[in-house]
């Protein structure tokens, strides 16, 4: 059952965005934005809205991450420490970050594929060319006669 009223607070969103940018940072060389910069926090928020059970796993750890940011004076040391204090937090967030990032149209374009679902257009392929089988045919049958 979804939790249609769920919404990240501004602080939760800011800190989640910071964590996402540590997981998938921007790369000028690859021409790709960071996951936080791309707005993948919205994807995570929607996921938590649709699957409230996952809020229990993620939100307390996100609160710990926020405390660490305040205590350590920055995102980078907090991101290091959260991996020790809440070992499940980063792997869970990595899964969600990868899922949201690589279905984003901007990333798909950067990968060289059309930014659309596979259906209904599909993809063009060359039809099968039977001449490619000549070598296999030349060996003769390989099944056991009974």
């Amino acid at each position: 059952m979804s939790d249609s009223d769920f919404k990240l607070t501004d602080t939760q969103r800011d800190h989640l965005t910071a964590a996402l940018d540590r997981i998938i940072p921007a790369s000028d060389r690859h021409g790709l934005p960071g996951a936080g910069e791309l707005g993948i926090a919205d994807f995570v928020e929607e996921l938590l809205r649709a699957n409230p059970a996952q809020q229990l796993g993620l939100l307390p750890a996100l609160a710990t991450f926020s405390e660490l940011i305040d205590r350590c004076g920055g995102v980078d040391p907090a991101f290091e420490q959260i991996q020790e204090k809440e070992p499940g937090f980063v792997p869970t967030l990595v899964f969600h970050a990868y899922s949201g990032y690589y279905q984003h149209p901007k990333v798909m374009e950067a990968l060289g594929i059309e930014p659309r679902p596979p259906h209904p257009q599909g993809y063009e392929m060359e039809p099968f060319d039977p001449s490619i089988l000549d070598k296999v045919r030349s060996r003769g049958t390989i099944y056991r006669e009974v």
């Binding site: 998938i24 690859h30 279905q103 990968l111």
Partner: peptide, 28 residues
Amino acid sequence: PVFTAISGMGSGHIPFGSDHHDGYASLW
């Protein structure tokens, strides 16, 4: 694209952090 990332995460070919994009490019 997504399953490449998830699969690469599981196999260790696609780390998070600064080497992420190089790892992904090696598999995509």
